[in-house]
């Protein structure tokens, strides 16, 4: 194998390894929702290219209010779906939309845009 071929092959393998690591081996620690005087566990989520933060930790048995604020116009993200809670909300650009949930059981529940390109997790303890 000529040196240029060898170097292209090695670069390719390294690039693939990087792609796998970068996109698939991420683990976010998650943000704990703040407890308000009203008994709600609240968190603010920014919708821009993804959900920031994308992992919210809450406690079971207490109502949760997630305030979504979308700051982009990409068609994909105009809705957020909590499939496990049978809930969804429209997210008009620039508006804060509260989504209220009542997690009864501990577990991990995902939320996503209708096309599943944006994903987030609600961890119930």
């Amino acid at each position: 194998m000529s040196p240029d071929r060898l170097s292209v092959t090695i670069a390719g393998v390294l690039l693939i390894a990087f792609i796998v690591w970068f996109f698939w081996f991420k683990r976010s620690k998650g943000t704990r929702a703040a407890e308000t005087s009203g008994g709600y566990q609240e968190a603010m989520i920014l919708v821009k290219g993804g959900y920031t933060p994308d992992t919210i930790i809450v406690r079971a048995g207490r109502p949760v209010r997630l305030n979504f604020r979308r700051e982009e116009t990409a068609a994909c993200s105009d809705k957020v779906i909590f499939a496990d809670f049978q809930k969804s909300a429209d997210l008009p650009t620039g508006e804060t939309v509260p989504v209220e949930l009542m997690p009864k059981e501990p577990g991990e529940f995902s939320f996503a845009c209708p096309m599943g390109m944006f994903r987030g997790r609600l961890i119930v303890e």
């Binding site: 996109f23 991420k26 821009k48 993804g50 920031t52 990409a74 390109m117 944006f118």
Partner: peptide, 18 residues
């Protein structure tokens, strides 16, 4: 431009899209 801003916003979340 939307391809680049879209890519950048996703990369910040270590995600990829169209």
């Amino acid at each position: 431009s939307q391809f680049f801003s879209g890519m950048w916003n996703a990369l910040k979340h270590r995600a990829a899209n169209m």
